[in-house]
Design a protein around this nucleic acid. Structure first.
Lengths: 226, 226
DNA sequence: GTCTATAGCTGGATAGAC
DNA sequence: GTCTATCCAGCTATAGAC
């Protein structure tokens, strides 16, 4: 066991590598991959530019490192949520747990320290065609996404594959907008509703989505495709 | 001996201004505002860079011009849809029309010529904190958004303002993901479901969202915040 | 209106001292 | 590991001929 060198108060115990990651997260979230410059990140972190390339190889390497640092915690929470859902035999109650397994781990980001920014990074990555080349979703998010679609289809055994995947993507999309809201909700509501309260956000969204899945075929005849 | 460059067949009577707008739409959609370069746009349009600044003043001017060209048609369709909804006295049927007034005009974009790209541009603009400075949403989208939230609240007279705005944003988010899907849906479904068929996309999404709004309070006691 | 040429910057990345 | 200094490719925008 090695003992970490104790830093003084000014450092707040952070290594320069950690400071770079922290400021990169906020700069990438605000400016996007292309709009962000390593110079700006280095300034915000209070380190020279060269140090970024020393630690992370390149701008792209730094970008990926942020996802590698943040994604596992979210995936683990989703997997844990799915384990709870699987243990619920009543399918009506189970879908509720599945939806929450998807939504809550993402929203809880907004609670902790700097990481509403990471939520914004995810949305930008998701809406960027170049993301396919980076392969971040393929590598870090797809495995759990498959577990989730699988869990949905087990809750609705009579659904087609189309219905399952559209349900999943509808939920994913709804989630995106909260991670990305730039005060538009506040503007449209005359300042009376804001998206900052993530617990309320999650509650409202889960209510709509769970009901949407459970009752989607209630009022209309089932689609007759294929 | 030099012959005045005659428009070739490929031009099909398009002015250079129109060609710039068309290629800008696809380049901005693929690379984002910062990632796109006016050089790349000019190459794709087959015009010299200077012409872009002549016609549109700046890169930002060109960007905005695309929204000014495309947004009105969508807004008009939404307004028309809302007019139909207002004429429907049965509130259960009316909310169905309101949701469709929001969703369908956006999805119908994917039907016509080059404009899945415009859908992608909207999503990127929506997930970009810098968009507030550009003011595109404020100027071109917010007025109709207010009409829509208003229509929702008329369908559910007992809802709080929070519930209305969360419902609207949930729908908006769900829509975003279809406009932006980069083949991830196809990947996750093993190639068996794709988001290319916009009619099916709209159908699935509306089914979930309408049911979500109508039945969101069916299984749980109403939130007690006020 | 359309073009060539270029000004004036800012970008990512690296070399090499310490 | 950390820093200074620097390379040079790429960017937006404009000047000015036609």
């Amino acid at each position: 066991m090695t003992i970490k060198p104790q830093r003084n108060k000014a450092d707040q115990g952070e290594t320069s590598k950690e400071r770079i990651l922290a400021s990169a997260e906020s700069v990438f979230a605000e400016w996007g991959f292309d709009g962000a410059s390593v110079r700006r990140i280095s300034e915000e972190a209070g380190v020279p530019v060269a140090l970024i390339n020393y630690h992370f190889g390149s701008k792209a390497g730094l970008y990926r490192a942020i996802f590698e640092k943040r994604a596992p915690a979210i995936m683990d929470q989703r997997i844990a949520g799915l384990r709870l859902a699987r243990a619920e035999p009543d399918l009506d109650r189970r879908i509720d747990l599945v939806v929450k397994a998807l939504i809550y781990p993402m929203f809880s980001l907004r609670g902790e320290s700097p990481s509403a920014d990471f939520g914004r990074m995810i949305v930008r990555e998701m809406s960027d065609p170049q993301s396919e080349a980076r392969g971040i979703f393929r590598d870090m998010f797809d495995p759990v996404a498959e577990m989730l679609t699988d869990a949905i289809s087990k809750c609705f055994p009579d659904w087609t594959l189309e219905e399952v995947h559209w349900a999943y993507h509808t939920m994913l999309g709804a989630m995106m907008i909260v991670m990305t809201d730039n005060g538009r909700m506040a503007r449209l509501s005359g300042g009376r509703v804001s998206s900052d309260n993530w617990e309320e956000a999650a509650r409202h969204m889960c209510a709509i989505l769970v009901a949407g899945l459970k009752y989607r075929d209630r009022d209309q005849t089932r689609g007759s495709e294929d």
